[in-house]
Design a protein around this nucleic acid. Structure first.
Length: 175
DNA sequence: CGGGTTTGACCGGCGC
DNA sequence: GCGCCGGTCAAACCCG
């Protein structure tokens, strides 16, 4: 259970608990839905259709070539895109605290959607993980979160109750 | 002052 | 080329 980050390309929101199926499903078959439970409402919810939105399978580790020189630094990234992982969560709030610190860098209206999509980047130095959050018009109670990239650093959150919860769980776990 | 958000401009890809 | 579209930049702004 400690190795959840090895199986999940993303960390779970702190207000979302998990069971073992989460990892198995996500690791094995990403087209399955996974079971999450919203600890705020304490209801079991189905994060239906966990869909892996992958442009291609290849993952390139570091890509940005920041030149402090003259013109605007553009990433000479190839056509290769990082894999993206998406899941949707039933939540009243748009902002799901997953333990990482994000900086919003954009917001765009989505076609055929009345809600905008927000773009976030992980603020950890050198970490290029991005995510976008979008509420579905189809079902306003669903929030679709798409992660791109993998965090290569530990969660830096001093007031992280998710970790607290995790350690508590391990204390009371009979293993 | 430092860090995060807002928001219109900008940019590259793609279809016509 | 032109316009649309999705994604990003960055200056201004906000806030503790």
């Amino acid at each position: 259970m400690e190795n959840y980050q090895m199986f999940l390309p993303v960390s779970l929101p702190s207000n979302v608990a998990f069971n073992s199926q989460v990892f198995d499903n996500f690791h094995g078959d990403t087209s399955n839905g996974m079971l999450l439970s919203d600890m705020k409402t304490n209801k079991l919810i189905q994060a239906a259709q966990v869909k892996e939105v992958v442009e291609n399978g290849g993952f390139v580790g570091s890509e940005t070539e920041i030149k402090s020189g003259g013109d605007r630094n553009k990433k000479k990234e190839k056509k290769t895109r990082k894999p993206r992982y998406a899941f949707q969560t039933r939540s009243q709030v748009d902002i799901l605290d997953d333990g990482y610190r994000w900086r919003k860098y954009g917001q765009k209206a989505v076609k055929n959607n009345k809600f905008p999509r927000s773009y976030y980047r992980c603020t950890h130095q050198g970490c290029n993980v991005k995510k976008q959050v979008q509420r579905l018009t189809k079902d306003e109670t669903l929030v679709l979160t798409t992660y791109e990239g993998v965090h290569t650093h530990p969660i830096d959150n001093p007031t992280d109750d998710f970790h607290h919860i995790l350690s508590q769980m391990q204390i009371y776990t009979p293993f």
